[in-house]
Amino acid sequence: MLLEQTLSDWQSWSASKPVVIEPLKGGRTNHSFLIEVGSQRAVVRINAENSHSLGIDRQQEADILSLLQPVGGVPKIHFMNDQVLISEFIDGRQWTDDHLKSTENFEKITRLLNKIQGIPLPKNSQRRSYVDYCQHYIQQLPKSRQASEKSVIKALEHVALEVDQSSWEPVISHHDLVPENLIETEQGLFILDWEYAAYGHPAIDFVRLYGGGYSHPITEKILLLQKGIDELWSLVQG
């Protein structure tokens, strides 16, 4: 229903009437569709109803995508609200784990992330508290699960606090930067799916991609933090 409603209002975001080509596979929570708009293709993403429970801030995603538009390396946004995102379809080669083994590719992603991290943040932007972010998930768990996992939760909160209290300035961070979200085209490298983006730790995207192979003073702490958040996400998602 939401897809049909969005497409029926096409004149508010497009000069041409869109046509649905096919559903897109691969999303863990949202539903996405490939559409054709005139001579161009675009993607309609119908947001998951439990976005907030999963730690997604749609307003922050919109703010960050707006900041990224002039920089490049991300899809152009045609339309966005708290339920739907319509963005440029990036047709290219999706990276895999094998692409991360190349020094040339490491330099490519480093240049792009450095460019993104160099964007000045809005004056009212708030640095992510990883303790609060973990708590957002923990508080959704049944009390019995919180009790049975008390030692694990305490260890995660401790490492989140260590990351929070380490010395760093926030930057635009993707927070879900896996190879599947990297597409290489003739125009360069693109990063997709920014729904978990926030003003976070500058090493967190590198560690997500390269794990312990990325050299940083708190790489191990970030790895533990990411592992714990991933596990909490899975428990909340069910």
Rank of each mutant, 00 (worst) to 15 (best):
S215T: 14
I218Y: 03
V131M: 00
I46S: 01
P122C: 11
Q94H: 10
Q83D: 10
T219K: 05
L224M: 14
D9T: 12
K108M: 10
I46R: 06
D63E: 13
L235V: 01
R58I: 11
F190A: 06
W95A: 15
V74I: 10
W233K: 09
V71C: 05
A197Q: 06
Q146L: 10
V44A: 11
E195L: 03
P122M: 08
R128G: 01
I172H: 00
N47Q: 12
S129Q: 04
D193N: 08
S32D: 04
A160P: 06
D57M: 05
Q187E: 14
H99A: 14
E180K: 04
R93L: 11
L65T: 08
P122S: 09
W233F: 09
G200V: 15
S87P: 00
D230G: 05
N30W: 12
I35T: 13
H175G: 01
H52A: 09
Q237L: 06
H175Y: 04
G188W: 05
Q237R: 06
S144D: 13
Q226R: 11
W10P: 07
I35D: 03
G92V: 12
I138E: 14
S125H: 07
L224D: 13
E36W: 02
G55I: 13
P217K: 07
L224T: 15
E231R: 15
P70R: 05
L85W: 09
L223F: 00
K101A: 14
S53C: 05
L192V: 08
A62G: 03
P179H: 12
W13E: 15
L225R: 10
S87D: 02
L7M: 07
G26I: 09
A203T: 07
Q135S: 10
Q5D: 15
L65Q: 12
R41F: 09
V20I: 15
P23A: 03
G211D: 07
S167R: 05
A155I: 02
N81V: 12
A203P: 00
G118H: 02
L189I: 15
L54F: 02
N114A: 09
S14K: 10
S167P: 00
A203R: 00
I138Y: 04
H136T: 07
V163R: 12
T29G: 01
V43L: 07
E149R: 07
